[in-house]
Design a protein around this nucleic acid. Structure first.
Lengths: 220, 220
DNA sequence: TTAGATCTGTGAATTTTTTCACCAACAGGC
DNA sequence: GCCTGTTGGTGAAAAAATTCACAGATCTAA
């Protein structure tokens, strides 16, 4: 490979940087330093610069910081973030319909072109502006529509079956909002967005924090 | 401290294990091995056992795996996950109201007792079963109600101000669904749940995957 | 032009995290 | 009871990620 292997934390941070650069650009900011980016992501400037090394040479100018527009394009190109990805939502409950209407996702390049629900008569289906299909048609519609990404917002017990159908239709990426893991063949990328676990992690940190205060120690 | 320092990845995995143990328990499963838990979390059994070392001795029985109920209690006790935490939601748009109705969160111990919105006349306010207040009352209500956790679902431009008010009221934990970082005083725990960034990470991985296929290399 | 401050890029050192290797403990069949 | 296969616990080794340190480039201001 022309470029070095890229570690997972690095990809994550670069994606965050990319999102942040979009905000800066729309505010009209032209330049940004690694120090500032580091501060905003909650890490050190060293880390940011190290991450940027995967972008090849000349990403920034020594002494003159990074050009917002140029850097954004560089990241976009490196990770193929420019193109629009066709997506669908499985599970049109409150959360699913909320996401279907979430404008920031569309702006990021996620084009939601279909919705699925096991109950085709749901009231909510009226309120969203995308074609809705029954769940048993997932594979077929995904294939016909050239959908690459699936958003899972079904109840826990239906998650694996929905996943299987998405994969069978040819989906490559799944954003899983269901608080349980799903199995996929190797090659399919799953990102879990699990607010239950996040809640638990947060409460655990609070407990640990109060412990370490008692010990006059810092951590976390 | 009586226990060793606990690393952040360990806390995260243990929270995931805890959530998983809850599922297993409700399915009636009595025993679970480190191998199985590792598989479900996408890591090795070594890692799981290493993590459990922070729980003290006797968490499991050699040859007999872990007792689901016992292990769950042990984690609960270690991280204070048993108690109910009073919470509020700031921003009652589609996402906010969806979360307010999200039953799994309540089951995990998150008791949402108030909602806030800058537009008090929102239609959606009618549809949720919690008292709703205007945003300028955040600090006061949070303090009076003894709210410890705030869920942020406002637009980007209002996030920092809402955060400040939550912190001023005495909130210790924030679940931030807004796709931008917020500043908090040290001591306040923030967990970012940012689906835009998750989307970007997922698409980046897809690009990298296709690259590494060309090179007959595996990563990610 | 010059001085001083700021910034990037990167090899090396450090720290953190994961993985390994292996012993003792236990369950179940016979 | 006794053997066999499986499992947990843990110190040591390996791998990965972060932080450091500094050379070299650029900008600003006087």
């Amino acid at each position: 490979m022309a470029y070095p292997q890229i570690s997972i934390p690095t990809v994550q941070r670069l994606a965050q940087v990319y999102a942040r650069l979009g905000e800066l650009r729309s505010k009209g900011t032209r330049k940004v330093s690694s120090t500032q980016l580091g501060k905003e992501l909650g890490t050190g400037s060293h880390n940011i610069r190290k991450d940027f090394s995967v972008l090849g040479e000349g990403a920034g100018q020594a002494g003159a910081a990074y050009d917002v527009e140029f850097l954004r394009n560089r990241i976009q190109q490196r990770f193929g973030l420019g193109r629009t990805i066709r997506a669908c939502i499985v599970g049109l409950g409150r959360l699913g319909t909320a996401i279907a209407d979430y404008d920031s996702l569309r702006k990021a390049g996620c084009d939601i072109v279909a919705g699925f629900d096991s109950n085709i008569n749901r009231v909510e289906t009226i309120r969203i502006g995308i074609p809705v299909h029954p769940a048993y048609q997932i594979s077929q519609v995904v294939r016909n529509e050239g959908i690459e990404l699936g958003i899972l917002t079904v109840p826990v017990f239906g998650a694996q079956e929905a996943t299987n159908r998405l994969v069978q239709g040819g989906v490559q990426v799944i954003l899983n909002f269901v608080p349980s893991k799903v199995d996929v063949p190797s090659g399919v990328v799953v990102r879990n967005i699990d607010m239950i676990t996040e809640y638990l992690i947060a409460s655990a940190f609070v407990t640990l924090k109060s412990e370490s205060q008692n010990d006059t120690e810092e951590r976390i």
